[in-house]
Amino acid sequence: MNTLHLVLNAVTVIFIAATMFAAGLRATVPALRGVFADVPLLLLLALTANMMVIPLLGWGIGSLLGLPSASFTALILIASSPGGPFGAKLATVQQGDLVTGAAMQVLLASIGSLTFAPTASAVLSAADIGTKVSLDVGALVRTVALLQLVPFVIGLLLRRYAEPTAQSWHPTAAALSSITFLIVLAGMLLGSWHDVVDLFGSLALLAGFLLAAFAFALGTLLATGPMTRRTTMGGVASVRNAGPALAAIGLAFPDQPTVLGALAAILLSGLAASLLISTLLSRRRGVPKTPQEHTDQATTQ
């Protein structure tokens, strides 16, 4: 099992880096400048929704469903950790705005590495379950920079200064991202299926599904721009970053395997909700438009 974990960790690293590299290969500096200049998008989606509302939403769902301590803790850890790398992949799945999604995901991951520890600690303390979280913020920032920001910037620079190379490399990077994505999903199921099965009667799976679904709706509602951009932001909001949560479990709950099992279950059920919504959006957008629909869309945008 240790070998499986090592292989899964390695594939996860490749998936994150390949996903962000592929996103960078498709990005342009003017497009990114437009994203970061959109103050309402940054304030409403990045700060209000992801940093404040979704952690409180996790608290509310956990309390409403009466989750036991381990599942409740795992849910709060996930809700307090924005910027999951799967968010960029969901933009591709739903045929959304990949450039905006990737840029916002990197921003949320960077900010979230700083806000995760105090947010999770505050919510868990307020919930009065006697749990505190202590994290190495510096290590989290370095991890985000190495695995997400650096590959994205490299891809972006290639697109800007060597566009033919970027175009020729993108199909390979995208294929690597998709293949490793499937391997990561299979590995999570294989490595934690006992814990997931044990949690079927605890409502933890339902809690993860509801958190992702409501976060998707909230992100879409608070985003700006055309619907493809808004639902992309919904996908980014719905997928949380497992890295800080796993670090918190390693530091604060090393002798509580039930918390790790609950985390895996909540992550998988939340990802299932996000994938379901994104797939439905993709099918809807895959229907050929009539000439009048193309005209209407161009007019609205």
Rank of each mutant, 00 (worst) to 15 (best):
A223R: 12
R240Q: 15
P226D: 14
T19S: 13
L158R: 01
V123K: 04
A139G: 12
Q167E: 15
V39C: 01
L263E: 07
P40H: 12
M52G: 14
G191P: 02
N9Y: 07
A117G: 10
V13M: 13
A213D: 06
P40M: 12
L47Q: 00
S282K: 09
E163M: 06
S134Y: 02
A22N: 11
M51V: 05
T28M: 00
S202C: 05
Q292C: 06
G235D: 05
G187V: 07
L203K: 10
T3L: 15
T224W: 04
T119K: 03
V236M: 11
V137T: 15
L146K: 12
G130N: 06
A252R: 02
F116Y: 11
A252E: 10
V196K: 00
D136Q: 13
I14S: 11
V196S: 01
L42E: 01
L114S: 13
V93H: 00
F15D: 03
V287Y: 07
S80R: 00
V236R: 08
D195L: 02
S178A: 15
L75M: 11
A212M: 08
L221E: 01
A175R: 13
L260Q: 13
V13E: 10
L275W: 06
T228M: 11
L32N: 04
A273C: 06
G208R: 10
L77P: 07
D136I: 12
M20P: 00
R284V: 03
F152R: 04
A245S: 15
I61C: 05
T258H: 13
I179A: 14
L65Y: 10
T3C: 05
L190N: 07
S110R: 06
Q148E: 15
A175P: 00
T143H: 13
L263S: 02
L176R: 03
L158Y: 04
A212F: 03
G261N: 10
A245K: 05
T12W: 04
L124S: 10
G286I: 02
T28G: 13
G84M: 01
L211N: 00
G101H: 10
F36Y: 12
F21N: 04
S69W: 00
F181S: 13
S134Q: 11
T143E: 14
L41G: 04
V259A: 05
N2M: 14
L251K: 11
G112H: 09
F152I: 09
A102S: 14
M20T: 09
P30H: 02
S134I: 08
S113M: 14
A252P: 13
F15S: 04
G155C: 04
